[in-house]
Nucleic acid binder design. Structure first.
Lengths: 253, 253
DNA sequence: GCATCGCCTTGATGCAGGTCAATGCCGCGC
DNA sequence: GCGCGGCATTGACCTGCATCAAGGCGATGC
């Protein structure tokens, strides 16, 4: 696996020395999972630091045997909840792969030791934790400050931007999952979409056409301090913490 | 300030070397603030890593000029949003001191450099970031999975536990602030309290008497993976990440 | 004492969004 | 073709919570 996988995750580990990474890789299991695979459940203690190399993971929160809501989505390349691994605390979420994904499993103890031993790796973990924390803060603000319809509108705006298609947004999952991510029911999500049609929206299955971006923005009132920002969203955003004294591991040829 | 202040925050920095800390302290401003002081506003870039030595800070999220909601409370000793400082990104929240508080202001650049240079300090930052991240995850789960009344009940249960008074909970702030922290209006909070009286609750101003803890728990359905856990809540919780190869900085003379 | 101001509570009302149920659509297997 | 199962939509209904408005209570000042 070595060369190509390392390149894929180099943005995560660019602060770590090659020697350290080699040592870590020896205690690493490469893993490919099919759609629907559950990586771990709520309340379990982390056995591995999972590194998402390709694909994505959905993180669900569950209440009793009742409902189950999407709290967060992890997109490659990223670390999967380093907060649980580093604090050796039970997972608060369940992780499921919505698509075929490619993972590295690093023994939790080995990972913690490597982070303690290798300052560059610690920097990378800090950057990841900080980014993920800020995403959660944005979500909390969104849930407390925006209406359902606003959240839907902002979600679509952000989605189309992330997908590089200003005129449309392709919903990445079933609508009921997106609804739970946005803190509402599928029915409310459906109605919110319908209510946004006057604002220049057309629903065509999983594809939402955005006919008038400005009008949608006027209704949804996106806020740069709430709704996703490129800076916080991708691990490849240029982040000062990574450049501080860290030599790049790989050139992206 | 040196000796006593360092003792107060030793749990945060116990991984850092004395030499490093001394260097950092030279670029540190000690600061005492009166109730109501705003430490920083949303959208500002962090100039300092603020260390909360004594007291507490409320972190508010604001939407336009409209509403303002409490997202998080930081209690001493703790770092104030290291996620913003480490990623050198704009604050997503405003910080206000509800009580007289005691702070250290460490220049942001100096702090980032110290974290990069000092593995023990990096470990401490990781532990703090991980704890704060998990708190936000709990909050998101709470907002999406629990009803208003449940959140109020669980809040009171956790509060009384944290205060060491199983029979009562003393509300730390004005009720409208707690309401916004729980994601509801003051009126709804008031009514939620009233609706819990049949479950053995008595409201006496800022003090809420819990006459029947079991009955309250039956109604509020607290979940250990949602509602505050001692482990994630205090920075003094024994956390593996801190003990990994870290020499204690100060003897507690 | 009284007036005032914050904060809280209570009530009346309305709406957003949840719940329940029926229907539609689509893909899949037979 | 048909039936079936999963998902989405739509409608009817209801409820939880927000909103608006009034009043109470306590602290403070004069």
């Amino acid at each position: 696996m070595h060369e190509d996988v390392l390149r894929d995750v180099s943005s995560l580990f660019r602060g770590a020395s090659a020697a350290c990474l080699d040592g870590l890789l020896r205690r690493t299991i490469e893993h490919r999972v099919a759609p629907g695979t559950v990586l771990f459940d709520q309340a379990e203690l982390p056995n591995f630091q999972i590194v998402l190399v390709a694909g994505s993971l959905q993180l669900f929160g569950r209440s009793g045997t009742q409902r189950e809501v999407l709290i967060e989505v992890v997109r490659a390349p990223d670390l999967v909840i380093p907060a649980a691994v580093m604090s050796a605390s039970p997972y608060l979420l369940q992780a499921r792969a919505p698509e075929a994904s490619h993972l590295l499993l690093i023994e939790a103890d080995a990972f913690r030791e490597a982070v303690a031993a290798e300052p560059g790796l610690a920097q990378a973990v800090i950057a990841t934790l900080a980014r993920q924390f800020r995403r959660m803060v944005r979500q909390a603000k969104s849930l407390k400050l925006q209406s359902s319809t606003q959240r839907v509108g902002c979600y679509l705006l952000a989605l189309s931007e992330r997908q590089g298609t200003p005129g449309q947004a392709h919903l990445p999952y079933e609508k009921h999952i997106i609804a739970s991510e946005l803190g509402m029911t599928r029915e409310s999500f459906s109605r919110a979409l319908a209510s946004l049609e006057p604002a220049g929206l057309r629903v065509e299955g999983q594809v939402i056409a955005i006919l008038d971006r400005d009008r949608l923005a006027a209704v949804a009132q996106p806020d740069p301090l709430i709704d996703p920002d490129a800076r916080d969203d991708g691990p490849d955003a240029s982040s000062p913490v990574l450049s501080a004294g860290a030599a790049p591991l790989h050139r992206r040829s």
